[in-house]
Amino acid sequence: MNILQALFFPPEQPGGVSSMVPYIQERFIKLGWQMELFSLPKRVRGKGQEEVLFETFDYTEYRGNKIVDKYIQTYRDYVWWTKMRIKKPYDIIHAHHPIAALVMKQLFPDTPLAVTIHSSYERELILNGKIKEGGPEHRFLMSIYGELEAKADQLLTVSESFRSYIGAHVKQPERIKVIPNGFDEKRFKPISHDNAVTQLITVCRLVPAKGLDILLHACAELKRQGHPFVLHIIGDGPIREELEALAVKLDLYDDIIFYGYMLHPEEFMPFFDVFVLPSRAEAFGSVFAEAALCWLALVGTNVGGIAEQIDDGVNGLLVPPEDPAALAAALEKVVTDPTYRYNLARAGWDKAKKVYSLQRVISQLKKVYVQMKPE
């Protein structure tokens, strides 16, 4: 069977699906399957000219809106690039982004199409203050779910909570299958260490949706209580200067290290003690599973896929979003009790190895592909 994995971001893009799919490809090739990757290079912008038509709604009522116009132009660019580059048929196409999925079905209507919806672009934009809930951009992006349902032969997503979210916007939510992300355990190597001061780490894009302002306020409370720590922030983004200013205001600047962007943070994580990320929303939260495989204690918010990964008090700690006091209390537990922290980390590693192994993903995807393959 010859399968095309259609990405949006190039495979070298760090984090999430773009870094996971090449490992899926490697495993399938070892099993004797044919599998290729395809994505839109960053240099391809403003090339496509074809008109875009959707089956389930008329997008032209949203024309003139900056975000919608950019989305449509990206769709055109993906069409242009796909026509330029793909010259042979595939048995199945598995897309990992709505634009990739809809373009592939447009250009190869007879090829069975699976699409994994990995995240909610509209929720991210709302939480980051880019669009308003119920506004034209939001309505346009929500309409895409119905279009995907009409075009895809199999809808997939990465968590039960995100399936529920998508299910409210499609006609047949029971068609959606859940395959949580999987990770090649060979990438993650726990390292025995004993830090004199508890080392906290977070890895994310520096945007409002990740809740790092809440984390800084929680850390300020932790410091007021006299508990020493160092917080390492790996990642970059539009609110970095704002976060640095907040750290100064909260008298935290000497307790925090801002690293900026890092290509392979999993090589760095095993030297720390606690992974913390108080996201305001998260479809899955791959970085939690990655941190667990590095044998870090987990502290996260009770939202989306994070709450499915963490069993509160067993393999990590969950707190409500937007609650610095609750987050500070959770951090106090893991900062002041190394044995408790170790036990959480060990349980997190055990669950991640069992539930989020790449082998489990391969097995589940094989079943999906076999069921989809035309006779």
Rank of each mutant, 00 (worst) to 15 (best):
H118F: 06
P98C: 11
Q5D: 15
G300K: 04
A6P: 01
F288D: 10
G167K: 03
I72K: 04
I117K: 05
F140R: 03
I117P: 02
L113R: 01
E266Q: 15
P228W: 07
K105Y: 01
V248C: 03
E375N: 10
N2S: 12
Y59G: 06
A347L: 13
I256T: 00
A297G: 02
Q34V: 13
P270R: 05
K189T: 11
F108T: 14
N2V: 14
L296F: 02
E137T: 10
S19T: 05
V368W: 15
G260F: 08
M1A: 14
A347F: 12
K70W: 15
R123E: 15
F183A: 00
L215Y: 07
R360V: 12
S18R: 00
R205S: 07
Y145I: 09
S159L: 04
L141R: 13
N2Q: 15
H138Q: 05
A245G: 14
F8I: 12
P338E: 10
S161Y: 13
K366W: 10
K373S: 13
I117C: 08
F38H: 15
V17A: 12
E308S: 04
A114K: 08
L107Y: 12
E322S: 10
M104K: 08
L318K: 02
A289T: 13
Y340G: 04
E244Q: 10
A291D: 06
G211L: 05
V355Y: 07
E122L: 03
E290K: 04
E266V: 13
R85M: 13
I99P: 04
G348F: 14
V178L: 12
D58W: 05
G134P: 00
S286G: 15
V299S: 01
V207C: 09
G48I: 12
V335Q: 00
I24S: 09
K105F: 01
V170Y: 03
I234R: 06
A283Q: 06
E122D: 10
K210S: 04
D255P: 01
A281E: 08
A150V: 09
S120T: 04
Q106K: 10
V276N: 04
D194C: 09
K105M: 00
Q73Y: 07
I131S: 03
S279P: 09
Y71S: 13
